[in-house]
Design a protein around this nucleic acid. Structure first.
Length: 614
DNA sequence: TTAGGGTTAG
């Protein structure tokens, strides 16, 4: 028997209390309890050794329990050894070994055991079906099995079907199963809600969520996380506040991860800090998941310092932690630090992922590190065996285009042929606008219109290029085309957090209670700008009431003199606003931190950290 | 014995 014993080399350090009371553990019932209690492989090995010594390892129940515990502890190999020793495995043993492979992310092997089970004429039951469903790509085949076996109405089977159908994007089939369920409970309802959220339909999810009566933390986490993941951070925080007021629900780590994500999107530093303290500032060790979310939150809320502090606290840093920190440096324009971090990762033998490359390429783009970026892009395939995705091409187009190498960027876009999408062309068009390359811009716009891909952004960019060069008929033509196609410009929206409250402004917004004072301050700001303007294009009057200026004006009248003002904008900051913000930082002596769609701008004494390169 | 939740991204 020793040949299959997984005990070889087991360290005898901390002993599980198996040796303390031998007579007590002669009883198989007590041993079964002991197996269930054991959490680590080492403890399981000790028990296993004991079973072998006492010739108890052929006991069906103990063997079965040990098999399951080994897989739960992450060692499915030991489970397989035990399974192979089982004579005439029954549906229990098969289900356990299939489950073991599923939870250890080995779906193929799980299915092989399922097939073996069928060929041995052992009939699957509801437990088996709900387990094997997770591992399968051919759900419909298994759905048929369920019918043949007469277990299609089992709640567990149905919940798994809902889960798997929606995870593969077949939300209609998921809903069909869900609607047929004779008794839906909290778990099946949550599963359906998750399905809608995974498919981006937050509204349908909310309808079901509101139907829940016996709510629990998981269903709330799904809904809060759903809002956070799909660009509704405010709704996520509103729901979280409701959760905090409830006496029955207590947020846990998963809740807080969603909250961090929501705060990072809004740029709500104070709320984010509060959420961090709720989870425990002084938690002995921050795990990688929480750590990554915190780094992301602090960096996107403007505090690179806090992001770095959190990074340093994390004991076991994985690649996601590094990715978050590299991205943090990137959006703040600290390109050197981002690249150093990338090197540090390699030194620690952590393999970069495709996301790592998005982060470093972004970092390069923000500072015009063209040759470094090119080298990294090439090394992806050559040194790391990572095929560049469309996102990486996007980063390269951004990097090359920003640096004025429009032709090279265009060649790169053309090189991927039909895979090039609107976003990629949109990025290139944005760079044409930056360098006023009307010829390439017209070529791209024509191409996009031909393929029916033109959006409001396409027309706005082209119109801006015409305006910049004084081609007013071109401007009019673009506006007309937009109108004809029923397109509306995406609205700029800026927010500012004052006293733990987030205030949002749209362009020309007059809905704020202190609107009168805000516009008085805005007049002052625009006058300062006019006095200091040195040429530049003729601007549309709407620029004077851009949302970022409104948020800044509110910041100036509602915060202490000398304190830092932080504004978050959903789109990229426009050139005029960028100039005005720099100027105001000089006139008022305030530090102004502005986060736009792409990155941070730290303005101090009339200068911006982006070096006007963004 | 079995079913629902979590971080990074142009």
């Amino acid at each position: 028997m020793s040949s299959i014993s997984p005990l070889a080399g087991a360290a005898p350090a901390t002993h599980f209390p198996i040796t303390t009371n031998k007579t007590k553990f002669q009883n198989p019932d007590n041993l079964a309890i002991l197996i269930d209690k054991a959490k680590t492989i080492r403890h399981l090995r000790q028990i296993h050794a004991f079973l072998i010594r006492r010739h108890l390892h052929h006991d069906r129940v103990l063997n079965f329990k040990l098999l399951r515990s080994y897989s739960s502890a992450g060692n499915v190999k030991h489970s397989v050894s035990l399974f192979n020793l089982t004579q005439n495995p029954n549906v229990y043993s098969y289900t356990a070994i299939i489950h073991g492979h599923v939870i250890n992310n080995l779906p193929k092997q799980a299915l092989l055991f399922y097939i073996q089970m069928l060929t041995q004429e052992v009939y699957p039951n509801a437990f088996t079906l709900s387990t094997v469903l997770k591992a399968s790509n051919s759900i419909s085949a298994l759905h048929c099995h369920a019918h043949k076996l007469g277990i299609q109405s089992n709640a567990y089977v149905q919940t798994s079907l809902v889960d798997v159908y929606s995870r593969t994007g077949d939300i209609l089939s998921a809903r069909k199963v869900f609607d047929k369920m004779p008794d839906r409970n909290l778990v099946s309802l949550t599963s359906m809600i998750t399905g809608y959220i995974k498919n981006g339909d937050v509204d349908k999810a909310k309808v079901l969520f509101d139907m829940i009566e016996d709510e629990d933390v998981v269903s709330w986490n799904v809904m809060i996380g759903g809002y956070a993941q799909h660009g509704h951070p405010n709704e996520a925080l509103v729901l979280f506040n409701r959760m905090m007021k409830s006496t029955r629900l207590k947020p846990n780590e998963a809740t807080m991860l969603a909250v961090f994500s929501a705060c990072s999107q809004i740029g709500a530093l104070e709320s984010g800090r509060w959420a961090h303290s709720y989870l425990g500032y002084n938690a002995k060790a921050i795990n990688a998941r929480v750590g990554s979310a915190l780094i992301d939150m602090y960096s996107k809320c403007g505090s690179l310092e806090d992001a770095k502090l959190v990074f340093d606290w994390i004991k076991s840093k994985d690649v996601v932690v590094y990715n978050s920190m590299i991205m943090a440096y990137a959006i703040h324009g600290f390109t050197r630090d981002a690249l150093n971090m990338f090197d540090e990762m390699s030194e620690r033998s952590l393999n970069p992922t495709n996301i790592t490359f998005i982060a470093v390429l972004n970092a390069c783009a923000h500072s015009g590190f063209v040759s470094e970026g090119r080298a990294l892009f090439n090394s992806m395939k050559e040194n790391y065996n990572i095929q560049p995705k469309i996102e990486h091409y996007g980063c390269m187009v951004n990097l090359l285009g920003r640096a004025g190498k429009l032709d090279e960027a265009y060649e790169l876009v053309k090189s991927i042929g039909d895979y090039a999408d609107l976003v990629l062309y949109g990025t290139l068009l944005g760079k044409c606008r930056l360098h006023n390359n009307i010829f390439l811009a017209e070529k791209i716009v024509e191409f996009l219109i031909e393929r029916g891909l033109a959006t409001s952004g396409t027309y706005v960019l082209m119109s801006n290029i015409y305006a910049e060069l004084g081609y007013l008929d071109g401007v009019a033509r673009m506006r007309a085309m937009m109108k004809q196609n029923g397109l509306q410009k995406e609205h700029g929206c800026s927010s500012i957090e004052v006293n733990n409250e987030v205030h949002e402004f749209l362009a020309g917004d007059v809905k704020h209670p202190r609107s009168k004072e805000i516009y008085l301050m805005l007049d002052k700001m625009n006058n300062w700008a006019k006095e200091n303007r040195t040429g530049g294009p003729v601007l549309h009057r709407s620029v004077e009431v851009h949302s970022e200026k409104l948020a800044l004006a509110f910041g100036l009248i509602s915060t202490k003199p000398g304190s830092t003002i932080k504004v978050v904008k959903n789109l990229r900051v426009c050139e005029d606003c960028h100039e005005v913000i720099k100027l105001i930082s000089k006139i008022t002596g305030r530090k102004i931190v502005m986060r736009d769609r792409n990155r941070f701008h730290h303005c101090v004494d009339g200068l911006c950290s982006c070096g006007d390169y963004w």
